[in-house]
Structure formats: C-alpha cells, structure tokens
Design a protein around this nucleic acid. Structure first.
Lengths: 185, 185
DNA sequence: GTTCAACTATCTACCGATAAATAGGTGTTG
DNA sequence: CAACACCTATTTATCGGTAGATAGTTGAAC
C-alpha cells in the first residue's frame, strides 16, 4: 500500500533487467497501478529515482556485508555467501547487479546517479580488501586493494557473461574456475 | 564517402559508449551528415543495424584472434596482445566491448541481434580454450573450457569496472592482479 | 529508362515533465 | 461542533521533444 515503496521495488527490478535508459515512468506506473504523474510526485525527475535506487542498493549492500562473518576460520563460507548474493540476482529472473548494469550506461547517467553507482564499487572493494587483510595479515595494503578490485571485477564479469547465456550454471562454472585458479580464497 | 561504412563506424562507437538502447537513427544521421531516412535506406530497421554491427564486430575479432601467435613459447605475449585489445576500447574514449555492453541490454535486443552477440562470446571462449589446450596439452577439455570462460568473464568484468572508474590504470591493476593470482597464464 | 542513393515530409508511439483539479485527512480556531 | 485552512497523494489532461519507421520525390549514374 506504500506507493513510494512499490515504485522503488518495481523500478529496481526493471533497471536490473533492462537498464536505466529503458526505465520508463509509464511502465513503472502501470506495474504499480497508478498514473505516471504519481511517480513524478514521489520522484520529481528520473535522476532522482535513479539516485534513490542506487543509494538504497548500496546501503543494503553495506548492511549485508556488515552482517557477514569475517573470521579467518570462516573465510570460505564468507566468500561463498558474498558470491551467492550476486548469484541470487541471476536466479531471480536473470537480473544483473543494479550498479553493474548502470556502469554500462554511465555516460548517460545524471551526475548524482553516477556518484551513487560509484559508491557501490567502493563499498564492495573496501569490504573485500578488509576481508583479505583480516585473513592474510601479512598482505600489503596495496596488494590487498588490487586483489579486492580483481575479485569484484571478476564476479561482476561472471554475472554479465552468465546473464548473456541466461544460465546460472555458467556463473557457477566461472566461479569454480576462479577458485581453482587461485583468484578466490 | 561510403555512407554505409560511415554509418557503421559511428554507430559502433555510439553503442560502445551508450549502448544499443540509446542508439538513435537521428544521431547517427547527424554524425554522418545525412538524413535519418538515409540510414533507414541502408539498414531498414534498428535490429538490422544492430545485427550488422555485432556480426562485423565478431568477424573482426575472429580475424584478430586468428592472427595471434599461439605457440607455447610466446604464450605470455599472446595473452598480453589479447588483453590489450580490450584495453584499447577503454583508451579509445572509455568505450566498452560492443558485445559486452549489449549483453547488459540483452532482454531488449531483437532475436537476431542477440544471436550475433552470443557468437562473440563463443568465438572468444573457443579461442581461449584452444590456446590453453595448446600450451597445456595435459589439461582436460572440460577444465580448459571452464578456464577459458573464466578468463573471458574476468576480462569483460575488468573492462566494465575500469570504465565505471573512467581510468585505464584500474584495468591494468586488475589484470595484473589476475595474473598474480594465477588466473591468467 | 532503370537503378541507386539520397532527400522531404510525415506518421504513430512513446518519452519525461508539468499544471491544475480532486479527494481525503489533519489540525486549528471561533 | 462546525468552519476553515492546510497538507498529502493522486488524478486528468497536456506539453514539447524524440523515437523508429514509411511513402513518395528527386537527381545522378550507367
């Protein structure tokens, strides 16, 4: 019954499936069951909606990452839970990471949307970096940062390619190969 | 002076920068210096243009890959040349792999465009797989296929994330971390 | 004279956005 | 209690702009 929440919910799924450019106020309104002017009431411009979506997406990611155990003893479980979050998007109607798909459209994003999208990468890479340094205390800060960036990129790439195949098994195959090669802990 | 070639040239760059959805006949026409109806003369529908772009893109990739040395002795140079091709897109005005960005929009692509986009992944993965089996003859076929898929995904991911940062150095950092971790030969 | 390649002009559909009106709720005041 | 003011959420109706696409015309080449 909370229209604003419903708008954000359907808009998020639409972006994850079709991207920011393809997001339309009319389609959102139709899905929610209101008129497009009502969507504009809650989010005056498309940029406002996009920024709200990516901001919340990053906040939820922050909460999720904070909830994960980062004890060295549970390292593999932690990484598995992290990867599973990206896998879930594919399982859920072959969707992509909201910020991943928006990076592909970055040149068309309003400035404040792009800032929020960038923050998602920051949050993920910083968390991975902290995880690595927690588990491998001897690892230098620079190396941990590079490795964290590599892990994040690899997972985003796996999601992109698996989505192109429309097959979650492809994601699983790629992640296993990452682990076998030594990229993932 | 070849209008059709000019159309494909500017359209390719537009897709690499803004994606398929954002591609507009009017914008193409303006860039080429003709009217949009002329673009429709050469490519009756947007799907025809998209399919032609991705088909040629894949063909050029096939030619490029065939031209690379795959002798075990030059393995690292070969891989470096392969990665450099993806790097070049970023250097060239922060663009993305044409098929990578179109995968993100796959749900909105006409069927024949999607088929061509898929073929690009096939071509790359098959080439990487052959490279691996050539260099590591003892590697099983299944393992080589997984590894090839992982390498391709990782590079596409690196390109995506580096593009989000608008910084080629990020791409280089990620690729180096891939190599250090053992993902790249 | 036929073909090619471009043009002009226009169509319908959809985009984001806005103004103005409406209905319902809340609170204040006489 | 009733009247009024105000706020919120939504509607109707519409705007200018742009999308892809098409019909018909022109001019040049062969």
């Amino acid at each position: 019954m909370d229209t604003r929440e419903n708008i954000m919910h359907v808009a998020k799924e639409m972006v994850q499936s079709h991207g920011y450019n393809a997001l339309s106020f009319r389609e959102i309104a139709k899905a929610v069951g209101v008129k497009s002017a009502s969507v504009h009431y809650h989010f005056p411009t498309k940029g406002d909606l996009g920024a709200a979506l990516s901001a919340r997406y990053t906040e939820e990611a922050e909460g999720f990452l904070a909830s994960l155990q980062v004890k060295p003893a549970h390292l593999q479980e932690t990484v598995r839970a992290y990867v599973e979050a990206f896998r879930a998007a594919l399982v859920n109607d072959n969707r992509m990471c909201l910020c991943g798909i928006m990076i592909a459209e970055r040149d068309d994003l309003p400035d404040h949307v792009r800032l929020e999208v960038d923050r998602f990468t920051d949050v993920n890479v910083r968390w991975l970096e902290a995880l690595l340094r927690n588990v491998y205390p001897q690892m230098r800060q620079k190396e941990a940062a590079s490795r964290a960036l590599a892990i994040f990129s690899a997972i985003e790439g796996a999601q992109l390619i698996a989505r192109g195949r429309g097959d979650v098994a492809v994601f699983d195959t790629i992640v296993k190969a990452y682990a076998d090669a030594g990229l993932l802990p």
